[in-house]
Computed example of a mutant assay.
Amino acid sequence: MVRFKNRWLLVELIPAPQTPSSAAPARLDGQKIWASLKQSIITNFGDVGWGSVGLSMSVKYYSPTTNICIIRVARDHHKIAWGALTLLTAIEGTRYIPNVVHLSGTVKHTQLAAVAHNRAVIARIRAQAKTPSGYQDSYEEYLKTSAMEIEALQD
């Protein structure tokens, strides 16, 4: 029996600066990210590109607080998904800059990288707000719940 091998992409979706006349950004979720990524693959790599990654690609996790996303794709064609992510400019009409933070062959290493990335982003938010390090805020609860959600992901 042959094992199905995956690659796990940890992606940060950085919102691009909006023009004053543009509407408020739409609330993202995994389905909207998947649909936009599908459209990017079809546009840039055609039906053959979509056929090679379509069955294996899925968005496993998305956090609106830190804008990170975990995407699973088959190992053989993960470069097509990564290329489509790089060429992705907008999701639901809102401009985003995708940044692939981590690529891994196992879900465990992706989970560890996601938790570490969440902590780094929250530390940056706290530094910008100039809060003392011992200050208890709502981000502590977020870090606990997001770590539990990420660790609950299965292959």
Rank of each mutant, 00 (worst) to 15 (best):
I14T: 13
P17D: 10
M1D: 03
T145W: 08
V115S: 04
I41A: 05
V48R: 08
R3K: 15
G51Y: 05
R27C: 08
R72V: 02
K60G: 05
S22H: 07
S40V: 04
S104Q: 04
L85I: 02
T43K: 13
L85V: 05
D47Q: 11
A16W: 06
G49R: 01
Y62F: 15
I33D: 01
H77W: 07
P25T: 14
K5W: 06
N99I: 12
A74D: 13
K38H: 09
L103H: 07
I14P: 02
W34M: 14
A152R: 11
T131I: 15
I41D: 00
I33Q: 00
A23Q: 11
V115H: 05
Q154I: 14
A24K: 14
L88R: 00
R124L: 15
R27N: 10
V2L: 12
S146C: 13
K32M: 15
E92M: 12
T110V: 09
I14W: 06
S56P: 01
Q154F: 06
S138Q: 10
V73G: 01
S22C: 10
K79I: 14
I42S: 04
W50N: 00
I42L: 14
N44E: 06
V73M: 02
T65D: 02
T94E: 00
A74E: 09
A35P: 02
I150A: 01
R126T: 09
A123N: 12
T65Y: 04
L112H: 08
I33T: 05
S138Y: 09
A152T: 05
G134T: 15
S52V: 07
W8K: 02
G105D: 06
V11R: 05
D137A: 11
S133E: 14
I14V: 15
R3Y: 08
V121H: 03
S40F: 00
R72Q: 13
W34A: 15
Y135E: 12
S138C: 08
K144E: 09
S21Y: 10
V48K: 07
P20N: 07
A114W: 00
V11Q: 05
S63M: 02
